[in-house]
Amino acid sequence: MELTIANFVQIVIACLLIIALMVGNAVIMVYIERKAAGFIQRRPGPYEVGPRGTIQAICDSMKLLGKQLFIPGNVDWLLYFLAPVMAFLPVLLLFLPIPFGKYLVALKVDDGILLILAFAGLGVISNILAGWASNNKYGLLGAARAVAQSVAYEIPMIMALLAVVFMAGSLNLSEIVERQGTWPWQWNIVFQPLACFIYFVSLVGETNRAPFDLPEAESELTAGFHTEYSGMGFALFFLSEYANMLLVSFVCATFFLGGYKGPILDGFWWTFIKAYAVMCLIVWLRWTFPRVRFDQLLNINWKWLLPLSILNLWVTAIVLKFIE
């Protein structure tokens, strides 16, 4: 790809749109999440501010903006401030290669999925920095859990995606969508149901969502790695957590659910509908299942997901050879 002024302008506009998407997504998802939680737990959820409580999330974010930036004693101030910024910045980069529509791609990278997987690792580093720098036992424990969890769940996630890459013969996200058809039975979820399942479980683990929210388990560790953060520091972590959720949902939609292809008319609306369906599934999962214990979490990964994903990869390779 050549670097021209037009390309540069395109990337800048894309970054601005992505920031808007991230913030809008956080506001909408907080509302959906709290309403869903209320529905599942037989309580109304937010209903005071605005019609049916719709402005509640905006008021909350205003409150976060106005809060004092508090630095606890004896923290490593450089790392303490670096951590939320490091959580937020790479997410911008991660959205660039996602094909929202056939022509709606911010940056056409040939190794798009590799870019996403590579820079997603920076999020873990921000978590462990936050936990370590805030000079807090809860924070440190949360950081230790974040390390073990994300290193473990990254492997079956990559293996599951690799099975689809085998089928498509390409690391380019647009090409992977192009290989899938319009109708649901032509999507990769039909050809790779096991990979889709493994990917879904590991994405819950990677984004630290319940039932795998061990790094920030509020009933054990107050808030885990971000215990000492308030105001904008917390807001940045919060924003990046929801943006990460959105990102893995988009990757799920692209890899397994046909991306921008769908019945009647292809287009970016299908990507968004599918991604938000995955998001709602994650929210539903959070309020339905209790949190697993830490040894259970690691056992699920190392004893089930990893062998299954290796098996899946192996079977995929053999079948592909036979078809050839």
Binding site: L114, A118, L122, V124, A143, V147, A148, V151
Partner: peptide, 18 residues
Amino acid sequence: AFMQVLIYVGAVCVLIFF
């Protein structure tokens, strides 16, 4: 380049932290 970030930043550094 992506493998460098994936392996060294995402895995090796995280294990060093551990």
